[in-house]
Amino acid sequence: MGFRDLKLLEVKNITVTFETDEGIVKAVDDVSFHINRNEIVGLVGESGCGKSVTALSILRLIPLPYGRIETGEILFYGKNLLELNRKEMRKIRGRAISMIFQELGSALSPLHTIGRQMVETILMHKNITRKDAWNIAETWLEKVQISDPRERMFAYPYQLSGGMQQRVMIAMALMLGPDIIIADEPTTALDVTIQAQVFELVREMRRSHTSILLITHDMGVIWEMCDRVLVMYASRVVEEGNRDDIFSKPTHPYTIALLESIPKLSADKGRLKAIPGQVPSALNYPSGCHFFDRCPDAFDRCRDEKPKLIDLGNGHKAACFLTKNEL
C-alpha cells in the first residue's frame, strides 16, 4: 500500500436515528466508506438523504438527545472516534478533522471579530502566545486572498460579504493543518463566479496533503472537484466509485436518472428526463430498496429485499439487484 492508498478515515456501518414526534427516523442507514490520504471524496444526494448527518456524525456533532449513532465504527488512524470521551474528541475537532459549514451566518459568531474567533480556535489547540496566534491568523487570511488582512481581523462577520465569510471559514478550517476537512455544501450559498474562486482555493488546499470530504447536491461540482464519489439516496449509499466510472458508466438506476435530469449548458432545448414521483418521507421508506417506487426497472425482489453494495471492480460498487455480478 502506497502513501496515497492509506485509509485515513474509515466509516463502518454507521446508522443514525432521530427521535421525532411522529416516530423514530433513520437518517443514515448502514453507511460505510473511507477517505484516503490526499483525496477529495464527494458525497452527493438530494436534500434529506442523510449526507449532512453522515458528516456531522464523523465529528460526533449529532444533536443530543434526539439523535443517536446506533451502530457502527468511525476509525481515524485506526482509533474509533465513537469511543473517545468529550475531552479527547475536542482535540480531534478543528485540529485533526475540521469542518466548513453551509450556513455561513450561523457558523461564525456575530458578536466577535474575525480575529478573535480565529485566535480563540488556535489557542484551544496550540500552546502559544496570543500574539503569535494573531499573526498565524493574519497570515491565513492573506493566504485565502482576503484583501487588507490586517484590518479585516477587526471586522465582524456582518461586515464581510458571503464570499469573504466563506474564505474566513476556510482559513479557520485550514490554519491548524488538519488531516481531513469536511466541507458541507461550501459553495451552495455563493454565486458561480465566487464559487469558482473558492474551488481554486480548495485545489490549493489539496497540495498541502489534506483530504477533503465534499458534500454537495450538485453533480457539476462533483465532476470539477472530486476523485471519488458516493451517491446517497434516502439514507443509504447506493453507488460508490471513481469519478470517471460514476459519470461514464453509472450503474444504479438512481445515479443514471440523476445524471440525466441535470439541465445541460447547451442550446438545444428538449424535455429533461425527470425522475417521477418524489423522495419518500424518512418515516415510511419502502421496506426493500428505497428507490423502489421511483425506479423504472423495479421488479418484485426490490420490494422486500434490501440490496447490498455489489463490487464491480476498481472500487466501483452499486446497491442494485440488476448489476451484472448479482444476476
Binding site: E46, S47, S261, I262, P263, L272, A274, I275, P276, V279
Partner: peptide, 11 residues
C-alpha cells in the same frame, strides 16, 4: 427544488 424535482417542473 431538488434536482430530480427541478426537471419535472421545468418540463
Amino acid at each position: 427544488l431538488d434536482v430530480s424535482v427541478q426537471a419535472q417542473v421545468i418540463n
